[in-house]
């Protein structure tokens, strides 16, 4: 059945060649399970994107309703608790897998010429992932979220001379409040995903172009 549908598509779009090129390309023989960490990270990121999109269906980024809407998701929405916790625990999973992936690349020396650029993109991606964690942590608007963000933004504010400016930009004012919540939300669901997907595109393009690094 699938083969027939695929033939039908191919007859019109002539895609078999490209699909084979993308999905069916040979992998060097030394590749083992250690080379899965990047893929696992990407799988988790896709899960984060899907569950995140669904969470926005009921979440409100306003001090009046943020906490209540998260409670609503957890307690009243069908499977809400599951979806929310997939997103919450999945975020830790992404950070863990990104670090494991980084360590694997580091110890295999896979960052060396000609792959320095891809290493740099990878380090940038690590920072983007951290940004997701930091902005997402505030969104439930409970005590932990609030005070963690107070501390985090205050740390950024301890920079000499620029401190006050940085705090005002991060919090949207001197104090943590409604403006902080909406800007963290905007960063979390629009700005960072756009950056992340762009950088991932570059990351994947380079690994395809340069191939998997040789054995140790």
């Amino acid at each position: 059945m699938f083969a027939k549908a695929y033939d039908w598509l191919d007859e019109r779009l002539n895609i078999k060649g490209q699909v084979k090129e993308i999905l069916d390309h040979p992998v060097p023989p030394h590749v083992n399970w250690l080379y899965c960490f990047g893929g696992i990270t990407f799988t988790l990121i896709m899960l984060q994107i899907v569950t995140g999109i669904f969470l926005v269906m009921y979440y409100v980024p306003s001090p009046d309703h943020a906490y209540a809407s998260v409670e609503y998701i957890s307690k009243e929405v069908t499977f809400g608790k599951l979806i929310r916790n997939m997103h919450r625990l999945g975020s830790s999973g992404v950070v863990v897998m990104v670090v494991v992936h980084l360590l694997r690349v580091y110890f295999h020396g896979a960052y060396k010429k000609p792959r320095e650029l891809n290493w740099m993109v990878g380090v940038f991606l690590l920072m983007v992932v951290m940004g997701f964690g930091f902005t997402g942590y505030l969104l439930p608007w409970d005590q932990k979220a609030y005070w963690a963000t107070v501390v985090g933004t205050k740390m950024a504010g301890s920079v000499p001379l620029m401190g006050e400016f940085i705090i005002k930009v991060a919090r949207g004012g001197m104090d943590l409040g409604a403006v902080t919540l909406t800007r963290f939300f905007a960063l979390h669901i629009w700005f960072l995903p756009a950056i992340l997907l762009g950088m991932l595109g570059a990351h994947f393009f380079m690994i395809r172009k340069q191939g998997i690094s040789g054995p140790m």
């Binding site: 669904f54 269906m57 929405v77 069908t78 979806i83």
Partner: peptide, 12 residues
């Protein structure tokens, strides 16, 4: 196993 909870969530 993803589609079932997500559908339930949206149709809640």
């Amino acid at each position: 196993s993803l589609a079932v909870p997500l559908t339930g969530y949206a149709l809640s």
